[in-house]
């Protein structure tokens, strides 16, 4: 794994959050936005070709939703870290979110530089018990 910023894929079928996420990542030198996807399908193929370290994944999308896309991405590359984001509150998101293998669930409006840094720093503890390999750290 090359040393450098954490490579991030942002997935949302709604433009406003993609735009906001881009703005946040822009000011964080330790993270780099590598692609945006507007559907679950696009996320799976983008993840396969660009191999991001981190995926910010919207839960509710037309067609393949974020949970299914997460399962597929992790099945292909278990070392990928996925953070589910949603405009719904955690209690309104299906319990399936917990079983998707994602690292964390984050309400979209709480997304920000500090939260992202915190989640990333504690990703080892957050890893689901399912024996996934630890994702790479930004500094090696």
């Amino acid at each position: 794994m090359a040393i450098g910023p954490v490579r991030v894929l942002v997935v949302d079928d709604q433009r406003p959050f993609r735009k906001a996420a881009r703005a946040v990542l822009d000011v964080m030198p330790e993270f780099e936005l590598v692609d945006e996807a507007d559907s679950g399908e696009a996320a799976v193929s983008s993840s396969a070709s660009l191999e991001p370290d981190l995926v910010l994944m919207d839960v509710h999308m037309e067609g393949m939703d974020g949970l299914e896309a997460t399962r597929r991405i992790l099945a292909a590359r278990p070392e990928t870290a996925v953070i589910l984001v949603s405009s719904y509150r955690v209690e309104d998101v299906a319990a399936a979110a917990a079983e998707s293998g994602a690292l964390a669930f984050l309400p979209k409006d709480r997304f920000g530089a500090r939260t992202l840094r915190e989640i990333w720093a504690s990703r080892a503890e957050l890893l689901p018990r399912t024996g996934r390999r630890e994702p790479p750290s930004p500094d090696g």
Partner: peptide
């Protein structure tokens, strides 16, 4: 509207 407000919230925090 909700999506716009979410985007606003994130970028305001930024």
């Amino acid at each position: 509207a909700q999506q716009h407000l979410i985007g606003l919230a994130v970028r305001m925090r930024l």
